[in-house]
């Protein structure tokens, strides 16, 4: 459990805090790497930019917001899926948007799940808990080196 990393891609610092708080509240204590925009997320995943040359572990799951500065979430997802190395990486879209267009695009690009962030924190925490439980414990991750 220790080496399983969650990559949280979220630009809103409130949401980052609340998400981490929810994880902690639900006793999900895995390491959470936060990328504040799409570019950063991609840098982390593909070891480019600020992450170049750094040793990193591929996240077990990526919690991806759609509306991101620089490179938006859907584009991030597309790049992940087009890369041979990361195309099997579980990606969960975690967003405020309930737009059908977004849901459709997300699934089309190969999102593993699409979760809408509720306004009610308790509900949000519950959602995070289910996600954590599912992707970190229940789900057998794909064999990615």
């Amino acid at each position: 459990m220790d080496n399983k990393i969650i990559l949280l891609v979220e630009d809103n610092p409130d949401d980052v805090d609340l998400t981490i708080r929810a994880l902690i509240k639900k006793k999900i204590l895995n390491k959470v790497v936060v990328a504040h925009d799409g570019a950063e997320a991609l840098d982390y995943i593909f070891q480019t930019g600020m992450y170049q040359g750094m040793k990193r572990t591929l996240p077990t799951v990526v919690l991806l917001d759609i509306k991101l500065p620089k490179i938006d979430g859907l584009e991030v997802l597309r790049r992940i899926r087009t890369n041979e190395q990361t195309k099997l990486l579980p990606v969960v879209i975690l967003t405020s948007s309930k737009e059908e267009q977004d849901i459709f695009s997300g699934y089309k690009l190969g999102a593993n799940s699409y979760v809408r962030k509720p306004v009610d924190f308790e509900q949000f925490a519950d959602a995070i808990q289910y996600l954590g439980l599912y992707w970190l414990i229940v789900n057998e991750p794909p064999p990615i080196s």
Binding site: D14, R21, K67, K117
Partner: peptide, 17 residues
């Protein structure tokens, strides 16, 4: 739908915190 909800979620989340 996206942007108005984020502050609400923050208000609610931090109120609970």
């Amino acid at each position: 739908s996206h942007d108005l909800r984020a502050p609400l979620r923050a208000i609610d989340g931090f109120s609970l915190a």
